[in-house]
Amino acid sequence: MTETATRRTIRAVLVVAAGISLLAVLLVLAAWRNDHTINSDKGVATAEVLSAGALRSAVSFVTPDGVTHTPRLGVLYPTNLTAGQRIDVEYARSDPDLVRVSGRDVRVALVPAGSVIVVTWLIVGPVLWFLRRRRPD
């Protein structure tokens, strides 16, 4: 591998790792913004879990005005839910499709996002070390 190719490869690895890290940070910021929106205009309801998955769970709940809502993107922070379960949810009254499991907030996203960043750089570190060692003198 030539000096130029090695430099380009190193730069590409750094760009990919920085991009993954940035996406993880943006995920946390988006969760914080959603929490802020819910907290600023909070409604509370009891919801039924229609389907449960590790990344997305569908719920249905009725707001005080008698309207049934089934947010198309599911509920925020859906871990450990099971279909048929009844849970308390908090939602933005101005946007009832923005709903989270009661008692959960952005702190739930910190460990996964931090883990993605740490693992990314734990992989990138040795790759960069290897590429720099192979660089022609």
Rank of each mutant, 00 (worst) to 15 (best):
E90H: 03
A83G: 11
A47L: 06
G66V: 06
A54T: 10
R56I: 07
H69A: 03
G66M: 09
A52H: 05
G53V: 08
T70A: 15
L50M: 05
R93S: 13
I87E: 10
F61P: 08
V75A: 09
P78D: 10
P78W: 04
D65V: 01
H69V: 11
V89R: 00
S57V: 08
L73Q: 13
P78R: 08
G53R: 06
G53Y: 09
V49Q: 01
R56Q: 15
T63N: 03
L81H: 12
R86G: 08
D97C: 05
V75S: 05
A58N: 09
R100T: 09
T79V: 04
F61Y: 15
V99Y: 09
P78K: 05
L73K: 14
G53Q: 04
A52T: 01
P78S: 12
D65K: 04
N80V: 10
P96W: 00
T68Y: 00
T70R: 10
Y77Q: 12
E90F: 06
V75P: 11
Y77A: 13
A58V: 08
A52Y: 00
L55F: 08
S57Q: 15
P71Q: 14
G84N: 07
A92K: 10
L76T: 01
G66L: 02
A54F: 09
R72K: 15
V89G: 11
S94V: 06
P71K: 11
S60L: 00
T82S: 15
T79L: 09
Y91F: 07
A47C: 08
L73M: 08
L98Q: 07
F61K: 07
A58I: 12
A83E: 13
A58T: 11
